[in-house]
Amino acid sequence: MDIKEFRNCMGHFATGITIVTSETEAGTHGFTANSFTSISLDPMLVLVSVDRKTKALNILKDNNFIVNILKQNQQDIAMHFAGHKQDTEPFEWEEGLLGNRIKDSLAYIECVPWRTYDGGDHVLFLGEVKSFEYSGGKPLAYYRGEFSEVVTK
């Protein structure tokens, strides 16, 4: 089976876009991720899947993290944290319980490390939720390699 075709196949599953932030001695680090899901309600657990080739791998190891779920109008933030830096940061930080988070995100989920698992060319980080908040608005969606909209009634 062809890896590229498998990736194209998986692109047919629409996802939301998140920025995962974590504190380091050098400051707050963040990366764009759409491989994120809720795992358990009791205890409250979420999963973030991280490519083994990224800097984020070492930053998340045994570290708190915050999942910032983006709103539909926050595409520039997603691109910024995906490595397409802009002259002026398209967001503001705000202090959360476990570190800095993206101000005005659709939702925030603050986590402490719970377990880490081998996920092939990725590492699966499970975090135990210690705090969360959500607000109104529409999510930023991703479908077949492009930003998309969620249509609601």
Rank of each mutant, 00 (worst) to 15 (best):
S38K: 00
V50A: 01
C9D: 11
C9H: 12
T18A: 13
G11R: 08
F36H: 03
V20I: 15
N8F: 11
T15R: 11
D51C: 08
T24F: 11
D42L: 12
C9V: 14
A26V: 15
G11M: 11
V50R: 00
F13C: 10
S49A: 07
H12N: 15
L47W: 05
K53E: 14
S49I: 05
F36Q: 08
E23C: 02
T21W: 04
I19W: 01
S38V: 05
G16E: 07
T18C: 14
G27R: 11
L47V: 08
T24K: 01
H29M: 14
A14W: 13
G16K: 07
R7G: 06
K55D: 13
L41A: 10
S38F: 02
T24H: 07
D51W: 03
S40C: 08
T18E: 04
V20M: 01
L41Q: 02
G30A: 03
R7S: 02
K53G: 06
G16A: 08
G30P: 00
L45Y: 01
G16S: 12
P43F: 11
S49E: 06
I17K: 06
P43E: 04
T54S: 14
T18K: 01
H12I: 13
A33P: 02
L41S: 05
V46Q: 04
L47N: 03
